[in-house]
């Protein structure tokens, strides 16, 4: 089975860059670390399916030069090849521009059965790229999975949301997103790291994909930020040492605030 894995460090980075005038480096670093983790789980799931059913795993990443780090990691884990969409015109793309380009890039992978992406629990601003991709590709959306199986041409999964668990079933090809709970990603072996250097990486531009540059980037965005300002930091309120009546003191405070 032919599987496409989306390595999604990049849309997130772009969405944050839109606000870079007022950015804290620390926040960005902590967000990126988490995103890497979900990428690896998506790659791991693809590799597990390949091991069970045969086939090929293609990694697709969209982003500037530094997206190659994520691509190399995926290839060293065992993915077979990669497509890197790298174009300055993409800077500032909103979620729809991102999804349009990804949909086109996925279309370059012949005969794919499954598209796997990480979910975007860490990214409050979007949280729906896989669903939007399914919309553009006209494919079933099997998202937020903590468990995934493929039997013949049927994909089954356990979706976990605030409401609980839903058991899903759809026909391939389909778009899947996985959550943190899906698996424990493998570490790349030394052999894998060496082999990754020889694996093919195709670099494509927006024009290569036949997307009009006007549809992507900051200019193509369907919504815009009017203003961004750092919130006045929360200030520390009262602090007391517990001298045996700490619980009662909290209760008094809550009563004073009309909270109980």
């Amino acid at each position: 089975m032919n599987i496409v894995v989306l390595v999604k460090q990049v849309p997130d980075t772009w969405s944050e860059r839109k606000l870079s005038d007022a950015d804290h480096t620390l926040d960005r670093e902590s967000a990126d670390a988490v995103l890497d983790e979900i990428n690896e789980r998506a790659v791991e799931e693809a590799l597990l399916l390949k091991e069970a059913h045969g086939g090929e795993v293609t990694v697709i990443a969209m982003g500037p030069d530094r997206a190659t780090d994520a691509i190399r990691k995926a290839l060293s884990m065992g993915a077979d090849k990669a497509v890197h969409v790298n174009d300055a015109a993409l800077h500032g793309s909103d979620v729809f521009g991102t999804a349009k380009v990804l949909a086109k890039a996925i279309g370059t992978v012949e005969g794919f059965d499954l598209v796997i992406a990480g979910n975007e629990a860490t990214d409050g601003r979007m949280g729906a790229v896989p669903a939007i991709l399914a919309e553009y590709l006209g494919l079933p959306q099997v998202t937020q999975l903590r468990k995934l199986t493929v039997e013949g041409t049927t994909v089954k999964g356990e979706r976990e949301t605030e409401e609980g668990v839903a058991h899903l079933e759809a026909t391939l090809p389909a778009v899947v997103s996985v959550t943190e709970k899906i698996n424990e990603p493998r570490y790349p072996s030394f052999k894998g790291i060496m082999a990754a250097k020889k694996k093919p990486v195709t670099t494509l531009t927006v024009a290569d994909l036949g997307v009009d540059a006007g549809e992507v980037g900051l200019g193509g965005a369907w919504s815009g930020v009017i203003e961004a300002s750092p919130k006045p930091p929360r200030t520390a309120g009262q602090r007391i040492d517990d001298e045996g009546v700490g619980g009662s003191k909290i209760a008094e405070y809550l009563v004073g605030q009309k909270l109980i």
Binding site: L19, H24, S223, V225, E227, A228, S229, P230, K231, P233
Partner: peptide, 9 residues
């Protein structure tokens, strides 16, 4: 940490 005001265009 940040407050952003946005509008759909």
């Amino acid at each position: 940490a940040f407050v952003v005001k946005s509008k759909v265009n």
